[in-house]
């Protein structure tokens, strides 16, 4: 019989390790085009919109009256791109999980790691580190660029000003947790469209609904909404109703943590 020789790999195989799973998830993340498109898009939006809005302000500065000048928030203007960046990062968070289910890759993944849960933790960790590094860099670049543009107006800020460094770094943290919220919801729903609708329903639509509540209820709930709580760390002077920056961020992390915990339960319990 003319056999086909399958080279043996004896002695070169180890056991499943968490380090191995992290490396595997890193390979998966960096080998898809959607990762580059969404992350590059998020960075471009952060820096681009920050420069655009601050440039418009610098251009109009001489024609603005005192009230308009007083209402100008140089930090917020330079970080305005987060509105778009959160869409990109949230979508990527969803896709890294839902992509496994929609393509059937999840069966190969879970055959390699039948314990299942380490896959979710490794995936979240790799995604969080990559997103945090890039979004922090983008927030810094947007801030430095934006303030340089505003220098002529005299209202430009520096990282040394009170709360500014925390808010800029906070924006990177906020965006990272938005993505993790997406990872968790996609793990629960296993479906990209549903998970994306949920992420942005909660972040963008829910506040609008709460505004329509009776005032007392609306004011009581408002600081604890994921979006308001999460933004507290990324702004200076978030308003009288807002939680303190780190308390707000902790609340936001609880939401993402709850989504990830639910994803873990579903991953362990349901057939793949």
């Amino acid at each position: 019989m003319s056999g086909i020789a399958v080279p043996a790999a004896a002695g070169r195989l180890g056991q499943v390790t968490f380090r191995g799973i992290v490396r595997s998830e890193w390979v998966k993340l960096r080998t898809l085009r959607s990762t580059f498109l969404t992350l590059a898009g998020a960075m471009a939006a952060m820096v681009g919109f920050g420069l655009l809005v601050t440039s418009m302000t610098a251009h109009r500065w001489s024609g603005m009256d005192e009230a308009q000048r007083a209402a100008t928030n140089p930090l917020a203007q330079s970080q305005i791109g987060f509105f778009i960046a959160q869409l990109a990062v949230g979508v990527l968070g969803v896709l890294v999980v839902s992509g496994e289910y929609s393509t059937g890759m999840i069966r190969a993944t879970l055959s390699a790691v039948p314990d299942r849960l380490p896959v979710l933790w490794a995936k979240s960790a790799v995604f969080a580190v990559v997103t945090w590094l890039l979004m922090t860099a983008a927030a810094l670049a947007a801030f430095l660029g934006g303030q340089a543009v505003l220098r002529s107006t005299g209202v430009g800020l520096s990282l040394g000003d009170p709360g500014v460094a925390r808010a800029v770094l906070g924006n990177g943290l906020y965006l990272t947790v938005v993505g993790l919220f997406g990872v968790g919801l996609a793990g629960v729903l296993r479906n990209a469209a549903g998970a994306i609708a949920c992420v942005f329903g909660v972040l963008l639509v829910l506040p609008e609904l709460v505004k329509a509540f009776p005032k007392s209820l609306s004011e009581a709930v408002w600081p604890y909404l994921p979006s308001t709580a999460g933004r507290a760390v990324a702004t200076v002077d978030a308003g009288p109703m807002a939680l303190s920056p780190w308390a707000g961020f902790a609340v936001f992390c609880l939401y993402a943590g709850a989504a990830l915990a639910a994803a873990a339960v579903v991953l362990k319990r349901r057939d793949a």
């Binding site: 195989l13 180890g14 056991q15 499943v16 390790t17 191995g20 799973i21 490396r23 595997s24 998830e25 890193w26 390979v27 998966k28 080998t31 898809l32 085009r33 959607s34 992509g99 890759m105 190969a108 993944t109 390699a112 790691v113």
Partner: peptide, 15 residues
């Protein structure tokens, strides 16, 4: 969206 090589590499990495 992944190449055959990267698909195999990702699975290989786990162990």
């Amino acid at each position: 969206g992944r190449s055959a090589f990267h698909h195999l590499l990702a699975l290989a990495a786990t162990t």
